[in-house]
Nucleic acid binder design. Structure first.
Lengths: 141, 141
DNA sequence: TATTGTTATACTCTATAACTATA
DNA sequence: TATAGTTATAGAGTATAACAATA
């Protein structure tokens, strides 16, 4: 992707490049894994965001998209029997809630995705621990 | 993206979870960075794939999408003056080729994207080298 | 006949703006 | 008035199938 990079003695760009390639690989693996369960990436991300029932507005914030999009996403998930709209105490609010089937599929997806996204087994246990530490630091934890 | 994705604290899953979150962050940073130059993520990926002129069919393979999609993507990039179709020796083939403006924007994007995707400065130089080594191993290099 | 790129069609995701029903 | 969700609209990305030009 960034073949023409400056050769610096030590190049942070190279690391950025590697992270981008790792991200690209995970993107494809994620799409492929959820597709095998009949979901689009957005639908799968929505299922993952619904561990607890959630107001649609709140969900839009979580998913970094406009609130109007949630209507259609919820419609398509509801059509598949995976979510329901539950009216809240404030009757303007609708809490998007996983059905029993939705919860089951969510659990299956967790396993499928974490297993298929990266071949973590190629690293020794110690390397896995070190990678975990570095990623946490990078993500600001 | 998947804050609630892995609730079981098995080490490999935690690592997978962290990689997916790092990937998600890079996805958003990438989208935001290329948007500031007026491109969609797909359009930017296409520009990056065009360091050399490339047959549209070949490009479809590289981008992991159906060949029919390239027509529209190429149309939109051509409308912005970034690419041209150059007929090949085999006159069925069209080589998608960056214009001077396309090459210039591609160089600018390389800099913008690698700078904005990850705050690698939060790691020490030694940590950056170690992360680089681990990612290379993970990616199978 | 086989391959390259295109077109037609349909679905999903996305944003903006206007609308409704509640508060 | 303000907020939550919806609808209308438009553009982009994606896949499948059928097509024209070329090999």
């Amino acid at each position: 992707m960034m073949g023409a990079m400056v050769d610096a003695p030590f190049a942070p760009q190279v690391l950025g490049h590697l992270l981008i390639r790792a991200a690209e690989r995970s993107r494809e693996a994620f799409a492929s894994a959820v597709d095998s369960r009949g979901l689009t990436p957005t639908q799968a991300r929505t299922l993952f965001a619904l561990e607890q029932p959630r107001a649609m507005r709140d969900l839009a914030t979580e998913m970094s998209c406009d609130a109007s999009n949630i209507t259609g996403i919820a419609d398509r998930l509801a059509r598949q029997g995976l979510v329901e709209r539950v009216t809240g105490e404030d009757r303007r609010v609708k809490l998007l809630t996983l059905t029993a089937e939705g919860r089951k599929l969510r659990r299956q997806l967790q396993r499928t995705v974490t297993r298929s996204t990266f071949p973590v087994d190629t690293l020794t246990e110690q390397e896995q621990r070190e990678l975990e530490r570095l990623l946490r630091k990078l993500l600001g934890e």
